[in-house]
Computed example of a mutant assay.
Amino acid sequence: MKLLFLNWIFLITVCYSEKDGKHLEVRERLKTALLQDYDKTLIPLMNSRQPVVVELGLSTMSMDLQGDGLLNMTNGNILQWKDARLRWNPEVYSNITSIRIPASKIWIPDIQVYNAVNYGENSFSDSLRNPDRHLAIVTSDGKVLLYTTHKLQIRCDVAKTVPGPGEVFIDRGQLDWPWGKYECEISMGSWTYSSSQIDLKPYLNRNYIEYLDQNNSPYLFTEDSFKDENVITCTRFKCCADLYQMARFKFKVEKRGTVTAQGLKLMKKDDKMLLISPFLLFTLVIISIIGTLFTISKLCHRKPNFLVE
């Protein structure tokens, strides 16, 4: 009986091992078939009259604005497009409908941040120049989804011009820094492909930058950010006759706590504003000091335990 039970366990193990091994073999065969004779330097333009639709989305985890107007951001970037060369029939490959492929093995759009300050290591440009770090999710209909993370530096407007004769330029650091609202913009687009080759669209029709974690960021988007319904614009550069599309995300940032005429606003974790007037804040400080002094006074006048009868 014991021997029969062990044989049964062995057969089950062998069957499942063969099944798992076959699944891996099918994925390897699928990946080989997709990349065989694939030229990653060629844009998947199947029709000269129909550009490749590239959806672009941004998200941010943290923002910090310096006094010189340099905004440091930790961002995530989403790119989605279709490549007919990466389609397959799931029924031929054990009903597999998606696969992960190193982004370095396939064509990816050459999207850049036009107004980035830094193009060095871990920048947006660097993340796309070194696609070995990322896996692209490819589905059986040829849709490709690529998610990358990067650090981005852009310049924001932290100065203003006072109108009048000769217009005086004033550094906002001397006025309301760092409690003002500062205008920023991220401009993105293809570096070499014109609008006849790439049709740029916002990912999921989002005309804004998604904030993934507001609780750990020194700066936040203001409520009047991202007012443009259409963030995609066309421009013509001096070098070229073709039109190029650009995604322009315009927004304002403000410090997590802001000072108003009524007092100090502190941002709570649930993102609701708690208003503390200067008088109330002063009162709380005085109460805290009095409580501390009272505690010290009690400790000083208490007799030691060995003196108490």
Rank of each mutant, 00 (worst) to 15 (best):
F221L: 08
V92T: 13
T60C: 01
E167W: 02
T161S: 05
N305D: 12
N72R: 14
A136M: 08
L307H: 03
L152Y: 01
N47D: 15
I276T: 07
Q262E: 15
L220Q: 07
G291Q: 03
D176Q: 07
V259Q: 05
K105F: 14
I137Y: 00
K298L: 15
L3G: 09
M46Q: 08
F237G: 14
V158G: 03
N7L: 15
K268H: 06
S94D: 15
I209N: 02
A159P: 11
G21W: 09
K265C: 10
I286N: 08
I101K: 03
K252Y: 11
R172D: 15
E55W: 09
A261S: 13
K22N: 09
E28I: 12
L24V: 06
L6W: 09
D271F: 01
Y114A: 15
L4N: 06
S98E: 04
Y203G: 14
K160P: 02
M73P: 00
A241H: 01
C156I: 13
N305I: 11
D64R: 09
R236T: 10
R302H: 09
A136W: 12
K181I: 04
I289W: 00
L212E: 10
K181A: 12
N77T: 13
Y211P: 04
N47R: 08
Y193M: 14
R85D: 06
L3W: 07
T222C: 14
E25N: 03
T139I: 04
D176M: 07
K151D: 14
Y147S: 05
G180P: 13
T222N: 07
M273V: 04
D141L: 07
F10C: 11
F251K: 10
T161W: 06
Q197I: 02
R248Y: 00
V113I: 14
